[in-house]
Every structure is written in C-alpha cells, then in structure tokens.
Amino acid sequence: MLEILNVKKSYKKGEEVLKGISLCVQEGDLFAFIGHNGAGKSTLIKCIAGILNFESGQIRVFGKDISKQSLEAKQCMAYVPDNPDMYPFMTGVDYISFILSCYGVSLQSVQQEMEAMAKAYEIYDALQSKVKEYSHGMRQKLVLLTAFLHHPKLLILDEPFVGLDPKAAKITRDYMHDFCKKGGIIFFSTHVLETAEKLCNKVAIIKDGEIISQGAMKDIVGNASLEDVFLEEDE
C-alpha cells in the first residue's frame, strides 16, 4: 500500500508546491494522477520515489517510511521519470544490468523475460548500442522495460506514454494492466486523459499543490468524460 499523509514541500521559503497532500493507493490499484503543468505532479512523484525531500508529512511504501527507511522502501518500487536522462555512455544492456544489479536481481532469472520484452518493444537489436544514440522513445522504452523487469510491488511512472509509438504505448498499457492484476500498484501521472480514463480504476486531480478531487474513476467521472471533469475542476 502507498500512503501519502499530509505531505508539504516548497522549493523556496513561503512558496509551497505541495500543500498537505494525502492519498492512499491500495494493492491492485492503477492510479492516475492528473493536473495542469506546474501543479505539483512531478514534485509529488519525486517525493514518493525518494528523490526529493519534503518538509512535513509522511510517505509510506508498504509500511516503510521513505524518509527513514529509504533503502527498504526503494527496494520494492521502480520509478520512471518524465524525461529519461540516462547514462549516455552505457549500452542498453549495460543499463539494464546496472539497474537490476542495484536491486540485487538475479540476472539469469530475468534473461528470457528481458529478451521477450525488448523484442516486444522493438529495441532488442539496439541494446548493444550506446544510450546516447537512442531516440527519446527508445530511451523511454528502455526505462520502462527495466522498471518492469525487476518485479517491483509499486511502479511510479511520470508521464510514461510521452515519446512512445502507438504499438509501444499499447504494450505498455497491457503490461500495466497485467502488473496491477497481479496485485502491484501503479501510480502514474499523465496528460492523456482518455488513456487514464480507460486504464485506471482510481484518479486524483491536483491543482496548485492541492488535491481537488480523488476517488474511484467511475465515481469521479460519472456520466461525463474525465476530460470534462478535469476542465471543469480546473477552472
């Protein structure tokens, strides 16, 4: 379970980016986190991933406090950033090996799975090339592949569909769906509201650092579309 309790974060004194955010995401949830640019989506996601510190509140990942037991909390999650700045000097296979080694995953056990996923994403032939030669989409595929590969319990994805071709986007949606079916949690931000509406069972809308609406997708959307609800709430 992912618990976010009254999290406050500010980059400058007196300018709060997150104004006491509280959320709870259960096992099996596919949680969409939406909001306009600069609302605080990426900041909260980075706080959950243990990248940014926050002033007050608590984030617990399966009972582990991200501030106090960060290694244990990070061990059971994977993070995919909005802009995959990777190590350009590594080859694709080096990157996968590096990340999985850091999680202590037995690489032999995931070799076949890696090959299958890389072929599905159509980057298998590029895995021997340096990351600096990859396009944005290929980098995104590599980061997503690596995130799924070490079987985390919680996946935190910051706009995962940006740069993906339609086929890769479809594969990613399928992987996400399967992942949650097996009891995993996905917490992801997106601007593609149509996808979020179809894919997710829960949603939260953030505006200026505050959650203005959250709950089950069907309850929030009702008979309208998520886009309509979002635009209405955002005004």
Partner: peptide
C-alpha cells in the same frame, strides 16, 4: 545475443 552481466551493487557502480 544480448546477455545481462551478473554483478553486485558495488561492482555495478564501479563499472558505471
């Protein structure tokens, strides 16, 4: 063939 290379955390960081 693309083969993953088994390493410890320290070895992976050193290689990086």
């Amino acid at each position: 063939p693309v083969n993953l290379h088994e390493r410890t955390q320290f070895q992976a960081l050193l290689k990086k």
